[in-house]
């Protein structure tokens, strides 16, 4: 049997496939959602099962301002990507910077809360089941925010240096998917921890 020729390609027929970047990111989001689901399930499962105090009502303050910040950052990043797609670098820089600032405010809020609870109120991950599940779930989310912030800052620095161009809009959009996901997860975490769980 001789070598089989590769069939000759005919460019007339059109052929389009989904974008690699977006597909990859959506898959990552699928995997991450499964991880969060397990943490949320154990949070709910262990509600009220702690053998000792404190209970959620006694110690948690609802972080309304932080929540507003984080959720609005989804809008700002959307505007940033839209601006970049139209080639408006200034507007991009502004909206991207706003996203970064809002994200930083959120993480600062969490950090302050934790500091208060751990050092002032002596409530840590070891205290009881509530402590274990609370710090793990909120911490898992916070670590995702942190990863997002690192990404945001990198792009921000590149943009300051004038390296982010219109052709990078696709990549920024892929990144924004991640950020939207982190926000969406916060809606779930917020509902479970601060609304249902209290």
């Amino acid at each position: 049997m001789s070598a089989i020729p590769a069939p000759i390609s005919s460019p007339e027929r059109e052929w389009s496939l989904p974008s690699r970047g977006k597909t990859g990111m959506l898959n990552l989001i699928l995997a991450e959602s499964a991880i969060f689901t397990i943490f949320v399930i154990s949070y709910i499962f262990y509600l009220g099962k702690s053998l000792s105090g404190p209970t959620p009502v006694e110690i948690l303050h609802v972080p309304i301002l932080d929540t507003i910040c984080l959720l609005s950052s989804s809008l700002t990043i959307h505007f940033a990507v839209a601006a970049l797609r139209r080639g408006k670098s200034k507007a991009f820089l502004f909206w991207w910077g706003a996203t970064l600032a809002l994200g930083l405010k959120f993480i600062e809020g969490t950090a302050a809360d934790w500091y208060q609870m751990i050092y002032r109120e002596n409530f840590s991950i070891k205290t009881n089941l509530f402590g274990t599940t609370y710090y793990s779930l909120v911490g898992l989310h916070a670590s995702h925010v942190t990863v997002g912030l690192i990404g945001l800052s990198l792009v921000f620095l590149l943009a300051l240096a004038g390296k982010v161009k219109q052709q990078h809009a696709e990549r920024c959009e892929v990144f924004s998917l991640y950020w939207h996901f982190v926000d969406a997860v916060w809606v779930v975490v917020f509902t479970v921890v601060y609304l249902v769980g209290r």
Partner: peptide, 14 residues
């Protein structure tokens, strides 16, 4: 794998 290994990863984190 995406939907199945991730719960293991979560459990190992715990």
């Amino acid at each position: 794998v995406l939907a199945g290994i991730s719960p293991l990863t979560a459990a190992q984190l715990m």
